[in-house]
Design a protein around this nucleic acid. Structure first.
Lengths: 114, 114
DNA sequence: TCGATGATTCGATAATTATGGAAATATGGA
DNA sequence: TCCATATTTCCATAATTATCGAATCATCGA
């Protein structure tokens, strides 16, 4: 992930309704949620939410698929992982910004962070 | 870290010059860098850079201290860690977004981030 | 105290982003 | 085909954010 992609992703998440929507989609998992369900949960008018979902989508953080009349959005975990990786590599300086997740499940994933 | 703080931090990093400046400060470590040095490295006029440094500062991501005539800025690693923790907890859904860093250097730093 | 240096604040302007109703598009069922 | 539903696109407007020169403020050395 390069810095431009990173900036788009950060900007996409740096907005109240979008952060709420993304959190919701992360919770929803692979099944995802319809645009209408998201708008209602977040409390934003449909057209506004549509605008925000487009931003998240353009940033690559969520995906869209049609299911009958509904458009189902779901989080792209890999993209979020890419963002986390960029921040860890470039913005944490080895000072252990990452909160030591899931260390008991693996200990051979060596990485040579620049 | 609550969602408003998170949004401020994300917004602070979601800008070309500011992301560049923050990366620089992370590299610079505790010693930090003067406002002028940052402006020159990033390639922005002093007044513009000052505006951006104020944003980062307001977001809590960097700190300022005066050293004679210079204002020295340095990264606040704890704040960055808080942001990473929030994203890991709320935006990664246990799908291991965090790239498993530095697992060999600690295994007793339990954390109960909300 | 004066002048030089490092940096911020001011102010005007440009550019981008957000808002939300109305109109348009897509899908499916009767 | 026609209607209802789900959602987006269009549009105008409001709000926020970025830019940067000039003026101001703070500090230091002579």
């Amino acid at each position: 992930m390069d810095s431009n992609t990173t900036i788009r992703a950060l900007a996409a998440l740096a907005q109240e309704h979008r952060l709420a929507a993304f959190r919701l989609l992360v919770q929803a998992g692979e099944a995802g949620l319809s645009a209408g369900a998201i708008a209602e949960a977040v409390g934003a008018p449909a057209s506004s939410m549509s605008f925000h979902l487009a931003q998240l989508s353009h940033a690559g953080l969520i995906r869209q698929k049609r299911q009958s009349r509904s458009l189902i959005y779901s989080a792209d975990y890999a993209a979020m992982g890419g963002l986390m990786a960029y921040l860890t590599e470039n913005c944490c300086g080895g000072q252990s910004c990452a909160p030591a997740t899931s260390c008991e499940t693996q200990n051979d994933t060596e990485r040579n962070a620049a």
